[in-house]
């Protein structure tokens, strides 16, 4: 499989702390890859380096064959990569459509548009289309998202990322704050995103979630990749072993 995203030997230091020590990571087209690791393994740092939040000290990152290491976050966005952050990053007082189009508002045609007038109906229609496609049912799309349940808010955040990510959606602990039914809804959503031909990176501590939804698992430990597993050929014991250091796949690094 040709990789859509491939990071090789990425190093990132913060002062004396070496968060990434030659970490590698790869995602293929239309694949759900779980990125796992204990706290401090470097998962968030790796993701932020891919997204352009940090520039790597060493190493290469390629996306669709182009080097992207050191690009700005907005340049990375423009390539079709979106991230759903752990803390949602929604504006709670705005409604669903306003959140989906935050920072990318559609303007009315003609003179009104040049005056900065929003195309609210067009945005609402496109938002409801996106939500229908993802089978996300929002009770009242015109209500502020703060009035939605945690699961629905997470769905809005995911839908927002999916709307703009043509190629790759990165999700940082999307189910951490959710109950069982909401978690199931988000996992279904991840499957639908994959079925639409996009790739997904899932950062999660939840083994059941990862086993349920991912195609492959890559494990980081102490800033380095220690295992690459195919989900259907592995089990909890092997994953936990890789995370804790009881077992290392030598060729993974």
């Amino acid at each position: 499989m040709t990789a859509l995203l491939e990071a090789r030997g990425v190093t990132k230091r913060f002062g004396a702390v070496e968060a990434l020590r030659g970490a590698s990571f790869a995602v293929g087209e239309g694949e759900v890859v779980a990125l796992m690791g204990d706290n401090g393994a470097g998962k968030s740092t790796l993701i932020k380096t891919i997204c352009g939040v940090y520039a790597p000290d060493a190493g290469e990152i390629h996306f669709a064959g182009r080097p992207i290491a050191g690009m700005s976050p907005s340049a990375v966005h423009d390539l079709g990569i979106e991230t759903v952050y752990q803390d949602l990053a929604l504006a709670p007082d705005l409604d669903t459509a306003a959140n989906l189009f935050l920072g990318r508002e559609l303007l009315a045609p003609g003179l009104l548009g040049r005056l900065g007038v929003l195309a609210k109906k067009r945005m609402a229609a496109r938002a409801s289309q996106v939500l229908t496609d993802l089978k996300v049912a929002i009770k009242d799309p015109a209500a502020p998202v703060a009035t939605l349940s945690g699961g629905q808010q997470q769905s809005v955040a995911v839908a927002r990322a999916v709307t703009w990510a043509d190629r790759l959606v990165i999700m940082d602990e999307p189910t951490a704050a959710l109950g069982v039914p909401q978690t199931r809804a988000v996992l279904d959503l991840i499957r639908r995103v994959r079925d639409s031909g996009r790739s997904v990176v899932l950062i999660s501590h939840s083994l059941p979630d990862v086993l349920a939804v991912s195609d492959r698992i890559e494990v980081l430990r102490l800033g380095r990749r220690v295992a690459r597993l195919v989900t259907k050929d592995t089990d909890e014991a092997q994953i936990v072993g890789a995370m804790t250091g009881a077992w290392t796949q030598e060729e993974a690094a």
Partner: peptide, 27 residues
């Protein structure tokens, strides 16, 4: 009118609601 129907107004609300979200969204 500026507050209610324009992009400028929308972003004013967004910043007050969650400045970090607005920043991450490219505002």
């Amino acid at each position: 009118l500026v507050l209610a129907v324009t992009r400028y107004g929308r972003r004013t609300y967004a910043i007050g609601s969650n400045a970090e979200a607005a920043r991450r969204a490219g505002v």
